[in-house]
Design a protein around this nucleic acid. Structure first.
Lengths: 166, 166
DNA sequence: CTCTGTGCAAACGGTTTGCAAGGGC
DNA sequence: GCCCTTGCAAACCGTTTGCACAGAG
């Protein structure tokens, strides 16, 4: 119900770093410099991003703490698996967002400025569950993206994209 | 509210073929054999499909009425543009479904058998619109996919996919 | 006859992977 | 020291595109 663009953090027992450490240990995997660096970097700000945007923000090849694209991709998948991040498809690329420590939510997507606005709706969940129940369907989750034009972009000229819903 | 797996057709003034013909004419494009063949083929059954599945169903190279993959891809985009088809992303591929003559709806997606179950929900639309209104967001549409296990697959063993929601 | 559409093959863009060297534990 | 992890480059996969010929109007 909030009109803020981003939702607030929840209280969680462990830091993302600790949680990832547990995940790694439980699978006999190792804590490495790239992995630590990436978790730290990603959780230092709340935003949506794709692999390419993340790579842009990181040190270039030759710089200290450089992480290769392959490792970034590999790590992102681990983070999703570990429950640190969430991912979904938008305009062909995979978009990631912080999951650990943040409440479940859906998105409004402004097709003009490409901004993602988060929202929570309890009634929405109820309806989802009711519909599923009617179909004898056991829900594990859902993905909802509402397309349109955000407040800031409304009023200026209309969007030109022809295929908003893909 | 129906528990059928597919929704019923609406009454529409023109056949898909006629509608596409109008679309082509309005843009100075031509009615060709491949395009006619594809529209006919696609609207001869109600189902979800991706480019590859469609290509599989069509005559192979060398056979009469062969249509090249490039043309299939090009045509699918035109059909979406013309309002004959709808498309969305699922598991990395672009899924198409009949749009013209069918009511707006959302999907339950069984991650076990990969079946897409259609449903309509008026309350869902209302909530969507309310949420959008609260954010000063002008809606053009939305995409909702509920992931889980369908009736037929429930009861047998659980799904093994690790990343249901991507 | 003109101009759009098609088939072919090459290109594309995001992501994944095989491999040999690097580095936790 | 063992084995997981990394970086590199090549492969991948679904989709798009440049081009020259075919065909609709």
């Amino acid at each position: 119900m909030s009109s803020a663009e981003s939702l607030e953090r929840l209280d969680v027992a462990l830091t993302p770093q600790q949680r990832f450490e547990e995940y790694l240990q439980s699978r006999g995997q190792r804590q490495t410099k790239p992995r630590k660096f990436l978790v730290e970097n990603i959780f230092s700000q709340h935003s949506h991003f794709d692999a390419d945007e993340l790579i842009e923000k990181l040190p270039r090849k030759g710089q200290p703490d450089y992480v290769s694209p392959a490792t970034v991709y590999r790590s992102l998948r681990e983070f999703v698996d570990a429950g640190l991040l969430n991912s979904f498809q938008l305009d062909g690329r995979t978009v990631y967002e912080l999951d650990y420590g943040y409440p479940e939510h859906d998105h409004l997507y402004c097709t003009r400025c490409r901004k993602l606005i988060e929202f929570r709706s309890e009634p929405l969940m109820e309806i989802r569950n009711n519909v599923a129940a009617e179909h004898g369907f056991r829900v594990t989750g859902h993905r909802l993206i509402v397309h349109g034009t955000c407040r800031d972009c409304t009023g200026s000229r209309r969007t030109k994209r022809k295929q908003d819903l893909v």
